[in-house]
């Protein structure tokens, strides 16, 4: 039955809302901890004025661009590193540097070197995200079955067929995992990048609201955008991951 798990989930969510509401009532400082209706009210006004849809659309575009770039680059480099020991040895120090560089350093340097523009913003997010995609896909490339490579060699399969029928199906679970964790990291970094140097988007809106200590606004934007990303994950990425793993069952 779908019932019991869904009901538990709803109950847990209701408990969260209740706790929040109760705490807001007890604290009785709506400027610091507004109750849920105040947050909903702000969100409604922001939707009506068009500011929130516009900001969320702009941020979503940046998230999408950074996501696509980091998935493409990370997958290609990760595949290479997984297939060739020499490539792996060459790439590894770069990987260590990128993985250990603070996000803030990457963002600030991108803005300084590339300029305060969207290219720099997307580049910064991609630079942060590429290494984790790479590590996941490298794991997948290492796990490729050499027996299927031999099959492709003796039957002289053209590279297109090899990629589509032999390599990608084996990599798909890893690509899906990289994509799913990738999205959740990407959108959080995009907000920081926007806060630091963009004149629009959810991150910029949060910055403005921070200047005026508008907690209701901060919560409204935070929940709205998180809900959108959860929706994308649940409706696009999770079904794709299930599909990629379907043949294993």
């Amino acid at each position: 039955m779908i019932g019991s798990a869904a009901r538990l989930r709803a109950l847990s969510l209701a408990a969260f809302l209740g706790l929040w509401w109760g705490a807001a009532l007890i604290a009785a400082k709506p400027a610091l901890l507004p109750p849920p209706p105040a947050v909903l009210g702000f969100a409604w006004q922001a939707v009506l004025s068009g500011a929130m849809p516009r900001n969320i659309a702009i941020t979503s575009l940046r998230v999408a661009a950074a996501f696509v770039v980091s998935m493409l680059v990370g997958s290609a480099v990760g595949y290479l590193a997984g297939r060739s020991r020499r490539a792996d040895t060459l790439i590894d120090p770069w990987l260590v540097i990128l993985l250990n560089l603070p996000v803030l350093v990457v963002v600030v340097l991108c803005y300084i070197w590339v300029g305060l523009n969207d290219v720099a913003a997307v580049l910064a997010v991609a630079l942060v995200k590429v290494p984790t995609v790479m590590v996941t896909v490298r794991e997948g490339a290492r796990a490729l079955d050499p027996g299927f490579d031999e099959l492709a060699i003796v039957y002289r399969l053209p590279w297109r067929q090899r990629a589509r029928r032999i390599v990608i199906p084996q990599l798909a679970p890893y690509l899906a995992a990289a994509g799913r964790s990738g999205l959740s990291i990407t959108w959080k970094i995009v907000l920081i990048v926007e806060l630091l140097g963009r004149p629009n988007g959810v991150g910029f809106a949060l910055d403005e609201l921070f200047q005026t200590f508008d907690v209701a606004g901060i919560l409204a934007y935070g929940f709205a955008f998180a809900a959108l990303m959860l929706l994308v994950e649940g409706l696009l990425l999770r079904p794709w991951e299930n599909h990629a793993n379907a043949w294993r069952r």
Binding site: G147, F148, L151, V154, Y155, R165, I166, P169, W247, R248
Partner: peptide, 11 residues
């Protein structure tokens, strides 16, 4: 070619 094990693509 027939390998020792079938090597059919499971997907």
């Amino acid at each position: 070619v027939m390998f020792q094990e079938p090597r059919l693509l499971p997907w």
